[in-house]
Nucleic acid binder design. Structure first.
Lengths: 236, 236
DNA sequence: TGTATAGATATGTATATACAATATGATAAA
DNA sequence: TTTATCATATTGTATATACATATCTATACA
């Protein structure tokens, strides 16, 4: 049996259905009463699952009417969110990648702090270089808690970026970026084929699904080959 | 009587207590049982209020231990947008600035392109260095079309940043940022007091009011003194 | 001394139930 | 025809209860 709480299983079921287009934006999904029937749980359990999904932005609910798939917000505030593979292909260029490391590590102080887990606890780690027309443009060092993605080490990240994998496994609801200009460390110099004095754009990204912290990644880009662009609408 | 749902009243009570420092970060707040007593409601009602506040980032809970005031997840949703003066003052530091240039120029190719005006047409130009505790943290080079802000040259930008002035004259509706890591040019080295090899974070910002392009600015920050932070919610 | 074990405390999940509030559509009255 | 009312469907809020799980403390035992 699935050991997860039943309301989480129901959440998973509905968000899966939305993602693989069984329901389109604006569609009415089954009522609480129908889901109670379908899953043989109490109404409060279904209610909790649905309220969570409203909170995560997947659904909207109207008393007396029903529950509907939310229409996605206009545009994402930061183009940087885009998957590096998509980004490269959108420019009409060739995208390739190399997986340099994929293993299990004890969490360093930085990683433990960023992921909110105990020091030295076990985390999955991947190190991948992304190339645009054979030229390295991003070195991605990523950490995920083992409990969050138990099958992380079995993935083939040349076929699917970690980011894509995360998006499939979870509904990503928020993201934090910290952007700084740095000089590349030895590892970055080597894999990005850079001089030691060439400035790099380093993006530290944390990703959440609801309250759950999914992943921490350090993305290093050669300053002469990469820019971040973001367009945003301001609140009134 | 307060017409709002009881769980909302409880949320209000607790978040008020946190905001006016009755509870500090890390403090334990009353248990569910105590709040049930205090408000004469059922435990599920208290539970809902507390879960909401966890979701909102005010509290953290540990089974077996209790409920605690969360340590603030830091700052504003998009650091990049904030006025540099506010940003510095929010950190409790001293903000000062020096106006290095304020004049009229013929638009260079870059400026003409960015502002969408003819080459060599007249634009207002300002060059300002912003300091945090006497230390330079941003060199702001800004261009505005003369028709947009006719009195630009008469402003005292030590009292009010160009950004503040823009916000007063127009309702800013959208903004574009392009972020890159660069090595400082001679001007930046001089005014930011930097070595030639120290990487800088350069933000090129364009600002619109409706369809109207208001301003183009190049903001240069020392890489060792400045980071950009942004948190965003993702669309479904 | 050190180690199980049991108990107390606190939150997490789940059920059954009830009534309130909101939107729609059908019916009855003017 | 128009308006008012009512019934129905659906979500929102609230209660009482139960058991599960995680953490700490105190006690008993080797």
């Amino acid at each position: 049996m699935d050991p997860r709480p039943r309301y989480q299983q129901i959440k998973q079921f509905i968000s899966d259905a939305i993602r693989n287009q069984s329901y389109a934006a604006g569609d009415k999904i089954p009522t609480e009463a129908e889901l109670v029937e379908q899953f043989s749980v109490s109404r409060m359990t279904v209610n909790k699952a649905l309220r969570d999904l409203v909170q995560e932005g997947l659904l909207v609910r109207y008393p007396g009417l029903g529950t509907f798939v939310a229409t996605p917000k206009a545009e994402s505030p930061l183009a940087a969110v885009r998957n590096i593979a998509e980004e490269v292909r959108a420019r009409g260029h060739q995208y390739t990648s190399q997986v340099l490391a994929l293993n299990e590590q004890a969490a360093s102080e930085l990683v433990a702090t960023q992921l909110g887990i105990p020091l030295h606890s076990c985390v999955f780690h991947s190190l991948i270089v992304h190339l645009e027309n054979q030229l390295p443009i991003q070195l991605e060092e990523r950490y995920v808690a083992t409990s969050v993605l138990p099958h992380y080490l079995q993935q083939d990240f040349t076929q699917k970026t970690p980011n894509q994998y995360l998006s499939e496994q979870y509904t990503l609801t928020s993201m934090e970026h910290i952007v700084e200009a740095i000089l590349p460390n030895k590892q970055a110099q080597h894999y990005l084929k850079l001089d030691a004095h060439l400035p790099c754009l380093q993006v530290s990204r944390r990703t959440w699904s609801g309250e759950r912290l999914i992943s921490f990644a350090i993305l290093t880009h050669p300053g002469d080959r990469y820019k971040l662009r973001s367009v945003m609408n301001l609140p009134a």
